[in-house]
């Protein structure tokens, strides 16, 4: 019988490597909230946890794999998706989730993202987008909005940022959605859907980085960024993601943009299928 005095067990405890806490993320960071939504979405999916694998790359979000109580792989910078591709093709009964940041997935790893989406590899990619490189101290990224200040764009970025849902849809992803860290309930439901979707699913989650991006852009507290998301997010399900570009301090279009069906890899029972073709 359990002692009545100690701290009550949390329903999400089974998903965490509690012995690894405290985590490395800053106060006000959104990654913890998003990881929590992931756990709830995973619980709702009722997937067998022995068969769910998390693969991450390098960066603040890349550290998530180290805290989840799943088979989890913290790989090299940008290469989580090809690592996960090999694992999924080698053992199709695994549910492979790539959980990583915008710099990892879309700058250094951008080409791998395009090709995994094109092949429609059966995996779920969760991208935490905080508009900059947090781990290395707040540098310009491929998602930094035009005009935003970072430690390598002190007077404001002069580069056009990447529109992640648009790229994902153009590359062939069958499920594309975007939320912010302020949309926990919707994010949970989206993650459940994405996990159960056959084929390549992408969930982009806009996240506060008060320590760097926020401080450099007049939102020094995580709460201010969360308030900005709440006040400026516009839900537009089904919109063509080319209209979902993010402008500096502008509105953030969120929702589910793509949910289609097309053949994916590994093809169900692909081994017999391939042999029968011969």
């Amino acid at each position: 019988m359990k002692a009545m005095t100690g701290p009550k067990e949390h329903p999400l405890d089974i998903y965490l490597r509690a012995e690894r806490l405290p985590h490395i993320w800053c106060p006000g960071c959104g990654i913890g909230i998003i990881l929590n939504s992931f756990f709830r979405g995973l619980m709702e999916s009722k997937l067998d946890l022995d068969k769910v694998v998390m693969v991450s790359g390098i960066g603040c979000t890349g550290r998530a794999a180290g805290y989840v109580n799943l088979d989890s792989f913290h790989t090299t910078h940008g290469r989580a998706i090809p690592f996960a591709t090999g694992m999924k093709l080698a053992n199709p009964e695994l549910k492979v989730v790539v959980f990583s940041g915008d710099g990892d997935l879309f700058a250094i790893g951008g080409n791998h993202f395009i090709h995994a989406a094109r092949r429609n590899i059966d995996m779920t990619v969760i991208c935490v987008n905080n508009f900059n490189y947090g781990m290395t101290g707040g540098q310009l990224g491929s998602t930094t909005p035009l005009g935003a200040r970072t430690t390598t764009s002190r007077t404001g970025s002069i580069e056009q940022p990447m529109n992640i849902p648009y790229l994902a849809a153009a590359s062939g992803a069958v499920y594309v959605a975007r939320w912010t860290a302020a949309h926990v309930g919707k994010l949970e439901r989206t993650i459940t859907e994405a996990l159960l979707k056959k084929g390549f699913s992408l969930v982009e989650v806009i996240s506060p980085c008060p320590t760097y991006y926020g401080r450099m852009n007049k939102q020094a507290a995580g709460l201010e960024q969360m308030r900005y998301y709440r006040d400026n997010s516009v839900i537009k399900h089904g919109i063509d993601p080319k209209h979902a570009a993010i402008e500096y301090q502008g509105e953030i279009i969120v929702g589910k943009f793509v949910d289609i069906e097309r053949p994916y890899l590994p093809y169900p029972q692909d081994r017999e299928w391939q042999i029968n073709l011969r």
Binding site: T75, T85, L89
Partner: peptide, 26 residues
């Protein structure tokens, strides 16, 4: 495919090396 294995032509050699590590852990 004749022996029940999987082949994939990756997008580059970085991805190829990452893929075989993932497959091995699979």
């Amino acid at each position: 495919p004749e022996v029940g294995g999987a082949f994939i032509q990756m997008e580059d050699e970085i991805a190829s090396m990452a893929a075989i590590l993932g497959a091995s852990w699979g």
